[in-house]
């Protein structure tokens, strides 16, 4: 129970120990704790931000989906309209074509008929003369009866 030179030793040990602990343990640990605090804070902020961003993205996705649905419905309606138009058009074209073919065929037919009639006409005179010769038994001059023969041919 006394104060001795040991006191000085204690003071020196304490001073060295404080200096050592400060450099080796306290300062690094404070840094680590601050780092961790900052990291946790930024992590929480990031999480909050992520949540908000997710909400925005979800909203955006819903909007996009709605828009896409609307667009697809529009496209389908348009396509149906277009299909109807095309069918209508095709029908019209087909009808026109049919009419055209029909009228061409009719014209050709008329032409054939008149050509046949023409052919018949050219032969009918000779046929009539030939027939009359056989009936009358004498030669008939076709030039003399040309008028009669033309009338006959015109009757065809």
């Amino acid at each position: 129970m006394n104060i001795t030179a040991t006191l000085i030793g204690q003071v020196i040990v304490f001073a060295i120990l404080v200096w050592f602990i400060k450099g080796v343990l306290w300062e690094p640990m404070m840094k680590v704790l601050d780092d961790r605090k900052a990291r946790i804070a930024s992590g929480l902020a990031a999480a909050e931000k992520g949540k908000q961003e997710e909400e925005v993205a979800r909203q955006k996705a819903a909007d996009e989906l709605k828009k896409a649905k609307q667009e697809s419905a529009d496209i389908i309606a348009q396509a149906q309209r277009r299909a109807t138009e095309i069918v209508e058009e095709a029908k019209n074209t087909a009808l026109e074509e049919a009419n055209r073919v029909k009228s061409a065929a009719t014209a050709e037919l008329d032409q054939e008929v008149s050509r046949a009639r023409e052919g018949l006409r050219s032969q009918v005179a000779a046929l009539a003369v030939d027939g009359a010769q056989k009936i009358l038994g004498k030669e008939i001059d076709a030039k003399v009866h040309a008028k009669v023969l033309d009338e006959l041919a015109a009757q065809i």
């Binding site: 129970m1 001795t4 030179a5 030793g9």
Partner: peptide, 16 residues
């Protein structure tokens, strides 16, 4: 009670 000529070896050794 106060004597700086004395050094308590055990106190110093154990605390150090």
């Amino acid at each position: 009670i106060v004597d700086f000529g004395v050094f308590h070896l055990d106190v110093f050794l154990f605390s150090a």
